[in-house]
Simulated assay, not measured.
Amino acid sequence: MKTIMITAAALACLATLPTIASAGQDVDMTELTCKEFMGDPDGIMPTIFWIDGYLSKATGNTFIDPDQMVKNVQDVIEACKDNPDQKIFDLFN
C-alpha cells in the first residue's frame, strides 16, 4: 500500500515538473544549484524522483524505497543550507 501511495504521489509530482523552469524550457539537471532547488518548493520532489530514476538506471536498482526518498530530501536540504551554489546532482555522486 505504501508503494502505491508513493507511486501516486510521484505521478502527481511529475505533473509539476516544469516548475523549476518555465514551461517548455529545457533544464540541465547537472547544473541545478541548491539555490534554484530550494527556491522552488513545488519542484523538490519531482527533482528527487528524477535523480533517483537517473541513478537507478546507472546502478540497475529498480526499487523505490519511500523512507530513503524522504531521507534523500532531508539530506539535500541540510547540505544546501550552507552552500547555495552547490550543484544538486553532485550531492548524489
Rank of each mutant, 00 (worst) to 15 (best):
F89R: 08
I51S: 04
I4K: 11
K87L: 11
T3W: 00
I48G: 06
D40S: 02
A23V: 13
T16F: 11
N93D: 10
L91M: 14
L91T: 15
V70D: 01
M1Y: 08
K2P: 07
A8G: 14
P41R: 00
I6L: 12
Q25C: 09
P46M: 06
L55H: 03
P66M: 01
E78T: 12
L17G: 00
K35H: 03
F37R: 00
L11S: 12
K2R: 12
T7L: 07
D42T: 03
F92K: 12
N72Y: 01
T33Y: 08
L91F: 13
P46H: 07
I48E: 00
C80F: 03
D67S: 09
F63T: 13
G60V: 02
D90F: 09
T33D: 04
T33Q: 08
F37Q: 07
I4M: 08
V70H: 02
T16M: 12
Y54K: 13
M5K: 15
I20T: 08
N72K: 06
A12E: 02
T47I: 08
V73R: 00
I88T: 14
M29E: 01
P46F: 02
G24D: 05
A9C: 08
D82I: 10
Q74I: 10
N83V: 13
C80Y: 03
P66W: 04
A15L: 10
C34I: 04
T7S: 13
I51V: 13
K87H: 14
A21R: 11
K2Q: 00
F92V: 14
M5T: 08
L32E: 05
E31G: 00
I6T: 14
V27W: 07
V76F: 09
A10L: 02
T7W: 03
A79S: 14
A9T: 12
F92T: 15
M45I: 02
A10M: 12
K35P: 05
I4D: 04
P41G: 01
I6W: 08
K35F: 02
I6C: 05
V27K: 06
K87A: 15
Q74M: 01
C13K: 11
G43C: 02
P18G: 09
E31Q: 12
T19A: 14
L91E: 12
F37D: 04
A58D: 06
E78I: 07
M1C: 10
I48H: 05
F92A: 15
I51H: 07
G39T: 06
